[in-house]
Simulated assay, not measured.
Amino acid sequence: MSSLLLFSVFGLSACNSDDDKTHVTKPPILPDTGFVIVGHRGASALRPEHTLAAYQKAIDDGADFIEPDLVPTKDGYLIARHESEISGTTNISTLSQFSDRKTTKRIDGIDYTGWFTEDFNLNELTQNVKARERIAQYRPNNTQYNDQYSIPTLEQIIELADAHYKKTGKIVGLYIETKHPTFFQQQNLAMEDHLLSTLAKYSYTREIAPVYLQSFETTNLKYLRDQLTQKKTLKHGKIIQLLDSPTAIPGDLQQQSSPQNYASLATAEGLKSVAKYADGVGPSKTYIFSNTEFKQTSFVKDAHAAGLKVHPYTLRPENGFLPDYLKCNSVATERCDTGAAKEFENFYKAGVDGVFADDPGLARKTLTQLQKP
Rank of each mutant, 00 (worst) to 15 (best):
F347W: 04
L265N: 03
I249K: 13
P28L: 01
S84K: 07
S150E: 14
K102D: 00
R335G: 04
G34N: 08
V300W: 08
H50S: 02
I240Y: 09
T219L: 14
A190R: 12
K74P: 00
A266D: 10
E217W: 03
R139Q: 05
P246T: 11
C15K: 12
N146W: 01
V352T: 04
D358G: 08
A45N: 02
V129I: 15
D100M: 01
L213F: 05
T333R: 10
H164C: 00
K301A: 13
T333S: 14
D358N: 15
N188T: 08
K276I: 00
Y145V: 09
I29P: 00
V36Y: 00
T366E: 01
A268K: 15
C328E: 03
I79S: 05
I110K: 13
G88H: 12
G320N: 05
K327W: 04
H194R: 15
F294S: 14
V24M: 12
A131G: 07
T117I: 08
T22L: 11
A200S: 15
Q241G: 03
A58Q: 06
P152T: 12
F289A: 00
D302A: 09
Q185M: 06
E217M: 07
Y145C: 06
D19A: 06
Y262C: 06
I249R: 09
L199K: 14
H50G: 07
K309A: 10
V24F: 10
R134I: 06
A136T: 12
T366Y: 01
A131R: 10
Y223D: 01
F116K: 02
K166M: 07
V38S: 09
H23I: 02
Q144R: 05
L370T: 01
K74C: 01
R101K: 15
H304V: 05
H82K: 09
T292L: 12
D279W: 08
V281D: 01
S298R: 13
Y262D: 03
P28M: 02
P323L: 09
L122I: 14
D279N: 15
K231E: 11
N220T: 13
L308E: 10
Q255V: 03
D20L: 12
K57F: 09
